Computed example of a mutant assay.
Amino acid sequence: MASILDLLNTQVGEQLVNKASEKTSEDKGKVSTALGMALPLILGAMKRNTNDAEGAKSLDKALQSEKHNGDVLSNLKNREAEELSSEGSSILSHVLGSKQNGISKTLAGSLNMDENSVNKILEMAAPVVMGLLGQQKRKDNVGASGLSDLLGSVMGSSSSHDQSMLETLLDSDGDGSVIDDVAGMVLGGKNPKKGGSLLGGMFGGK
């Protein structure tokens, strides 16, 4: 089953970890673990927001922007860390609001990381999440009313979007060949990232 954590096993995930590690001077292993905790939290906050009709409409409008059409997934290595962080800061202010500082503080404490570093990692991850959702929304022609199901799928819940989510995650450059090479590794659960085990209790049974 595809989920947002599978992103960490892809080239896009590796590029995100590298950029965040360089930006924060934090160890790549810690960055990967932080992302493993942060990505589902961002998605979970979005999913809660879509429970409200206005919230769903607002997210749907944002995802319709060409800024979130998925190009970030294929061009991530060419994006400046500061650009990602600035864009992500705006996204998170909408998604997390006043909860962002508390989330960063909690993650920083559990990972023994600097709170500012965790904030930067959250900010850099947000445009990638929005790009992934925007690309999937276009592929599956999802409207505001279907966003909750789409977000559930990306968080790892079983739904009709799972297979196309996997294709999006593993074939971000669109050449069609990556799935055959990598799907077995990801679906087989080989070489799991530390973030997955940390999140198992939070999201695994849902």
Rank of each mutant, 00 (worst) to 15 (best):
S3V: 03
N49L: 11
V142H: 02
K193P: 08
S90W: 10
K77D: 14
K139I: 04
K190V: 13
V118C: 09
A56M: 03
S58N: 14
G152Q: 02
L166S: 10
N51G: 15
D173Q: 01
K57W: 00
D149M: 08
S110D: 15
N78M: 05
G70W: 04
S58F: 08
Q15D: 15
V186K: 01
K206C: 06
V186G: 07
G97T: 06
L132P: 02
F203D: 07
E54A: 15
K193G: 15
L170C: 09
V95S: 01
E26F: 09
K194T: 14
K23D: 03
G134Q: 00
L169D: 03
N119A: 08
G156M: 09
D180Y: 09
E87P: 06
G97E: 08
E82S: 15
N141L: 06
G97V: 07
F203W: 10
G189D: 05
L92M: 08
L111A: 04
K61D: 09
A56P: 00
Q136M: 12
K194V: 12
K28G: 11
L35H: 11
L170K: 03
G55L: 01
L166E: 07
L133D: 00
Q163E: 15
D114W: 03
N119Q: 11
L169W: 01
S145Y: 02
G29L: 05
L16I: 14
G188H: 07
D140M: 13
S93H: 12
N101K: 14
E83K: 15
D162M: 10
A20G: 05
K206G: 07
S32G: 11
Q136A: 06
V178C: 08
V17P: 07
D180S: 12
D149S: 12
L59K: 10
L170M: 13
L150T: 00
V31W: 04
S93I: 03
M1H: 09
S25D: 10
S177M: 12
A45G: 06
S117T: 13
L107N: 02
D181Q: 08
R138P: 01
E66H: 12
S93A: 12
N78F: 10
K30S: 15
A2G: 11
L76Y: 02
L76C: 01
Q11G: 08
M130N: 03
L122K: 07
G188V: 09
T106Y: 15
T50A: 01
E22Y: 01
N9K: 14
A45C: 06
K120C: 12
E115G: 02
V129A: 04
G196L: 13
G131T: 09
G189S: 05
N75Q: 14
D52H: 09
K23T: 07
L35M: 10
S164F: 02
S89T: 11
S157I: 12
E87N: 10
N78E: 06
G146V: 01
L166K: 07
S32L: 09
A144H: 12
L151E: 00
T50W: 04
L92W: 08
G188I: 09
G156T: 05
S90F: 10
